Computed example of a mutant assay.
Amino acid sequence: MQLQYEYLQYNKRTESLSKQEEVLISQIEQLKNLIDAKSFAISSLCGALLQISKQGISIVHRGLGSCPNGRSIGNDVLKNIIWQGRNQSMHYEENNPNQAVKNCFQNLETSFGSEFSLTLHPSENFAQKIVIKVLGWNEYQVYEQDMISLLG
């Protein structure tokens, strides 16, 4: 009888744990969805910031050729990282970057690691990593200073 009693108690605890696990799994899934949604939103905003910056270069200098380089970042320069980062961000779903984008990201990979590898991450939008990790544009003053260095 005692063995039966212990068995019933064990089953009750297991049922209780299973329900708690289900609740936790559901909460974890909700948090993952929130993180994904926020990450996508931040990435989209970063892509828009690169687009605006690229447009500034296009309007003031009519392209990269006559634009000052801006500060050096790793093995590349500010203007090129903005331009190629924007191109990668706008066309990443095509998974067919042009040679200038490939060259820029090879430089980024050399300077900042494999998280910038187009080969290892072929269908990733790198806008968030470019804006926050590479350019450091999580503070307005840094963005403003960079844009003044390029646009005057």
Rank of each mutant, 00 (worst) to 15 (best):
I73L: 01
Q99K: 14
E29M: 08
Q55W: 09
S66Q: 15
I81M: 02
K54G: 02
Q30G: 06
L8N: 12
W137T: 01
N125V: 04
A37Q: 13
K38F: 12
S111I: 10
G70Y: 03
A127T: 09
A41I: 15
K54S: 05
F126T: 04
P122H: 05
E94N: 06
I82M: 01
Q55D: 14
E139N: 10
Q145I: 14
S123M: 12
K38C: 06
P122V: 05
T119H: 12
S26T: 13
S26G: 06
Q27N: 11
L108G: 00
H91G: 02
R86W: 10
N125H: 04
D76T: 15
N11H: 10
S72D: 04
L78G: 01
K19A: 04
N107M: 05
P68M: 02
Q128S: 10
E94S: 09
I25T: 14
M90F: 13
N69E: 02
N75K: 13
L118G: 00
K102L: 08
T14N: 06
L135H: 06
I81H: 01
I52L: 14
N87R: 03
E94K: 06
S44L: 09
L135I: 03
L120K: 15
V77R: 09
S39C: 08
L49A: 04
E115W: 14
Q84H: 14
S58R: 08
N69Q: 09
S16N: 11
I35W: 01
H61I: 04
R86H: 15
I28E: 03
I52N: 11
I130M: 04
K54Y: 11
I28P: 01
P97V: 06
L135W: 10
W83S: 01
E15V: 09
S66C: 10
A41V: 13
N107R: 12
S43D: 07
R62K: 15
Q141W: 06
S44I: 12
L8W: 12
F126V: 10
H121R: 14
G74R: 04
G65M: 06
Q141F: 04
S72P: 04
I82N: 00
S43T: 15
P68G: 01
Y143F: 14
Y143M: 08
I42P: 00
E115V: 13
E124R: 15
V101Q: 00
S53V: 13
V101T: 10
